[in-house]
Amino acid sequence: MNDLYLYGITALLPLTACILVFQVNPYHALVIRGIFGAIAALVYAVLGAADVSLTEALVGTMLAITLYAVAVRSSLVMRLGVLKDDVAFSSSSSSETMAESQAVHPDSPTTFRRLLAELNNQLSQHYLRLELVPYPDQDALRQALMTKEIHATCVGCDRSEAKISERKELAEVTQDSQVDEAYYHTETRIQPLYEMMQVEGLSSVSRVTYVSVSEQEEVH
C-alpha cells in the first residue's frame, strides 16, 4: 500500500473534532474551530477534492470564525447600567482627575473600581463580558431596566438620603460590618445573574437585589 500517509492525515480530523467538542470556553472553541477547518482543508486536498478544500478554507474557516466571533462577543455580555458620574470616576486613571474626583467623593472611585473588578471576576468565570452603559439619572436607569435595555443597574447608595438612613438602620439591626461597608446597590432582572452574584459574593462592596420585570410587554 503506497498511500499509508492518507490514513494518518485522515485520522487527524476526528482527533481535532473531539478536541473541539470538549472545549468549554466559547473563545477557545473558536480557535479550535479554526484548527479543525485547517485540518479539514488538508484532508480534502489530499483526498483530491481541491474545490471542496478551497471552500472549506475560505468560507468554513475564515467567514465562519469571523461570524462566530462577532456572535459570541455580542451575546455573551452583561449590560450594566450605571450613572454617568460613576463612569467618570471609574475611567479616571490619570492622577489629576483622580484627585479631582476624590475631592468630590472621598471613597467612590476605589469602591466602584473594586466593585467592577469583583463583578468582572465573577462574570469571567462564566465566560461573560461586562459592558457599562451610562445613563444621566436614576429615572432613566430604572426605565432602561424595565424596558430590558440593560440586564442590571448599579447605583451608589448615597444618592438619596433615604437610602443612607435605610443602610444605617440595616447596619444597626444586624450589627454586621458587611452591611455597613455596602456602598453600592445592584439590581438585576435576570434570575441566573442574581444567583451568580448572590452565591459567589459581591456582598462586601454591593447589596444585590432581584427585581422581576413584568412579561406583559413580551406578549404581542
Binding site: L30, V31, G34, A38, A41, A45, S53, L54, A57, L58, T61, M62, I65, T66, A69
Partner: peptide, 13 residues
C-alpha cells in the same frame, strides 16, 4: 491560495 489567504482570518480573530 490557502497559504496566502489563510492568515487573514487569524488576524481578525
Amino acid at each position: 491560495i490557502i497559504l496566502s489567504v489563510g492568515n487573514a482570518a487569524l488576524m481578525l480573530l
